[in-house]
Amino acid sequence: MSQPLIEEHIARTATGDREAFGRLYSLTSAKLFGVALRVLNDRAEAEEVLQEVFVKVWRNADRYRANGLSPMTWLITIARNAAIDRLRRRREGQAELDAAEVVPDPAPGPEAHAVAGSERERLAGCFGELERDKAEAVRRAYLGGETYAELAAAMDVPLNTMRTWLRRSLLKLRECLDR
């Protein structure tokens, strides 16, 4: 996917260019739908999230330049955040039902075994330097939208311990990624 092309379509979308917006959709909707689907695991909800995402993109395209993100990161972040918001709302509705049976899931997802691409290797390498359950907690926060309270419950540790672990892990991760 060509980043400069996507960037140009975002810039033109910011001027109200519907055709550019349509091209942006053609180029990126499958990736963003893939992200929403992975987070939500529900096609109907992922579709609604996709709609939210592109409405946001149309309305906020003029603000893209100010944020310093690469164009795909900007789009993926909007999609991830919208999907997480929805997932959290869904979980709030279920929280009482499930509170008693939260089970830790230490198995890393397939993305932990990332292979090709130097960016991914770098990321996987740095995640690999963390203890396994800590790396998993960071991943679950990003892809599962889990809060400190949820992570603490899942890993059966006090909330403050969880927070301290995760914050230390973030610092280690950042040091590794900046190396």
Binding site: A30, G34, N67, E111, G117, R120, D178
Partner: peptide, 21 residues
């Protein structure tokens, strides 16, 4: 923040593209 956003977004690199309806 941008550095984190870039790195975390790369966690989705492996997710397959799926054409929406």
């Amino acid at each position: 923040y941008a550095a984190w956003a870039e790195d975390f977004a790369a966690l989705t690199d492996d997710f397959p593209e799926i054409a929406p309806p």
